[in-house]
Amino acid sequence: MGVVKKRSPAGVFIRYLLIMVVVTWALFILYWGVVTSLKPPAQTFTISGISIPFVQFIPTLDNWRTELYTRESKAALLNSIVVALAATVIAMALGIPAGYALSRFQFRKMKNKDLTVWFLSQRVLPPVAVVIPFFLIMRFFHLLDNVFALILINATFTLPFAVVISRQTFQELPIELEEAATVDGCSDFEAFWKIALPLLTPTLVAVAAICVAFTWNEFLFALSLTSIKARTFPVYLAGAEDTRGVQFWFIATRTILAMGPPTVLALFIQKYIVRGLTFGAVKG
């Protein structure tokens, strides 16, 4: 890279030191969660300093075992998985064709970019502004404490990712391939389904992963619309604060269980994260 100029070794050292500080800072909270989940409950706050496992205490998997064998946790995990996957499938099924249409066809009544911004504005909407009508509507349809309600709502709120990002990526795909296919007798739908879509598979997988992660992390709707049967993992986590006070060891275990799936997914789609989270506005 052209940026490198002659630097004193001390300067380089300081820079690496700073980078290490930053990375430690970024990871400390996660580290603390993992470490706390491995401590025996009695020792949660008695081990001083940064609590290095094996050095300062003997790690145990007891908390994990208890947690993973609890029926409620398993049910909540399952709900989270079902909601995240189903909502993502709906968002992708609706959003990708829309994104394709916005990049390939001309809309006259409302211009393409205005439609795009309109879809985007769904993300601007603060969820708390619609949580009450949703609550009443779902109560009317007897869908309170039902995963179906959460699936519908999360599909709505992740739809903008699918529409806008797929539009931006289709935009960069040369149209000639599809035109050639149409000349060869493909219908417009086949040109989309057989030509354009397969070429964008990696990006679309990344978009799906972002939708899954956002749905997984969603809390306000899940808290408001479910109680026991359909509660997702974050809501279950929030219930850990029970009458016996906060049980930090279980909380730590559950937070790590909650954060695991979205963070691991994120690592798989690193390349697409900047583009995905900025709705294609910044190319990563």
Partner: peptide, 16 residues
């Protein structure tokens, strides 16, 4: 590594 915090479940971050 810097990506990790972004995707952490916010409500879980609060509990940590």
């Amino acid at each position: 590594l810097m990506i990790l915090p972004i995707f952490c479940t916010p409500v879980a971050v609060g509990y940590l």
